[in-house]
Computed example of a mutant assay.
Amino acid sequence: MRQLLIACFACALLGAPAVQAQTLKIGGLLETSGSVASLGQPGLEGAELAVEQINKAGGINGKKLELVNINSESDNTQTVSAVKRLTGQSDILALVGPMNTGSSYAVIDMVQRAGIAMVSNGGSRGIVLPVEKKKWIFLAPLTDTLVQKVMLEDMKKKGIERIALLNSDSAFGTSGREQLETQAADYGVKIDIQQTFGNNDKDMTPQLTNIRSKDVQAIVVWSTGPAQAVAVRNIRQLGLDVPVYLSHAANDYNFLRLAGESSNGVLIPSSKLYVTDSLAEDDPQKPVIERFVADYTSRYKRPPATFAGNGYDATMLIAEAIKAAGPDRKAIRDAIEAIQNHVGVTGIYSYSADDHFGILPSSVEMLVVKDGQFTLGN
């Protein structure tokens, strides 16, 4: 007995209980209050649903999975503080990153120094670039570059050559502007005028009045949250009768609610979440999305937003890596990077040492709003 007690004490000093623990813990940085709560709350719900499904199926290698989420309040400083708290706990194996692009940028260096993998839910390509300097950072959502390729291809098919860009001054909006400026010419599209607004602005009439003077063939609005609805309502009020393209952040029921009838006709490059019934029977994502929608609706009594799919996928990706690598932070990072053809709600994921975006182009569909509903575009 004396030898056993000595051995147990020695193991405690060496941190062995973390290895022997019957619960595997991952950290969450999902915002349930503040300006990005409309993204973070469904993201947390999706992550919690993933944990519930995993545990009902027997856990990971026989151990329960637990998500420890800290509400960052949509604030970069609070997110940094949350990362410090989570990474300071040796039994936190990986992080489900914030929905807020700016907060994702704010914690990259700290996550790198801590040596813990983070699957971010921010929508900017720059979060994981350059990969050689951000080896511990991965993305789960659609990226601005990927969805813009689908959007620009749609413009090309429709003969649209001159556009206006209206973007927010947030990290997401700025990144979207940079990516669109980089690749528009490849599709024969020219940005005739670019205007910026504050992400919390309640009126974009001055910027849109400037755009109206240019007689462009389409308008692109790149932002998150309620500002997208404000911009679309202002566009309709000014009688700008041209196609309106929004970022993938608009594939959200909150946008439809806030924009009302003004949303009809807008075009959104999106995941397949809202158009599952229209997908081909052999689409590999169809059964995954159908199960997700059914389980989410049963638990939360409402249909899921696209951001719930992001949180769900990020958690499932980490769980797959833990299953393959065990409770070791570095091994988990390596295992995420090795994931191939993981079928998720938002997309099909294949990572590599050179690609931490993950989602394959086949995961994106062009949607159009008809009668207040998301539908597949023509």
Score class of each variant (00 low, 15 high):
V216L: 07
V230Y: 05
S350P: 00
V288P: 01
A335Y: 02
V111Y: 01
V68Q: 13
K190E: 15
V220H: 08
Q89K: 11
K157Y: 01
Y253N: 14
V150I: 12
G43F: 01
A335C: 08
V111N: 00
Q41R: 15
Y349D: 10
G15C: 13
S33W: 08
V107H: 02
V83I: 03
N199D: 14
D91E: 15
T375S: 13
G27Y: 05
D109W: 01
R85Y: 05
K323I: 05
A231M: 12
P206G: 12
L240F: 04
A117D: 08
E261L: 09
L238Y: 00
D75H: 01
S120K: 01
I6C: 01
E337L: 05
D109H: 09
T315G: 06
A218T: 06
L67Y: 09
V293H: 08
V119C: 09
K272E: 06
Q148K: 09
A338F: 05
I211E: 03
A319D: 05
A16Y: 11
T87Q: 06
I191R: 03
G198T: 14
I289N: 02
G358I: 00
G159C: 03
P17Y: 07
S278A: 15
E365S: 13
G372S: 03
Y349N: 06
A114I: 01
T87D: 07
I289L: 03
D144N: 15
L29K: 01
G126S: 15
G126D: 13
Y274S: 10
I348L: 02
R329A: 07
S247N: 07
T375V: 15
L240S: 08
V119Q: 02
E181Q: 14
I163S: 00
F9Y: 08
N200K: 14
L246M: 13
D295S: 15
E178Y: 07
D201E: 14
V288F: 04
M316K: 14
S170E: 09
V266N: 06
K190L: 07
V369C: 04
E181R: 11
N251H: 12
S298K: 15
D283V: 04
A294C: 04
I6Q: 13
S35P: 10
R2P: 00
L152K: 04
A114F: 06
G43D: 10
N69I: 09
A294T: 14
Q3R: 13
S124T: 04
S103M: 07
D295I: 03
Q179K: 13
A7R: 15
K135S: 14
S247E: 10
Y245F: 12
S223L: 05
V288H: 04
L129V: 11
L273M: 11
A308Y: 01
Q194H: 14
T205D: 02
A140L: 02
K149I: 06
G311K: 03
G260N: 08
G43I: 06
L256Q: 09
Y300K: 07
S278C: 04
T32W: 03
Y296N: 07
E66I: 07
T23G: 01
A314P: 00
T209D: 08
T79R: 01
K286F: 03
I54E: 00
L65T: 05
S363M: 03
Q89A: 09
G102W: 04
A325I: 06
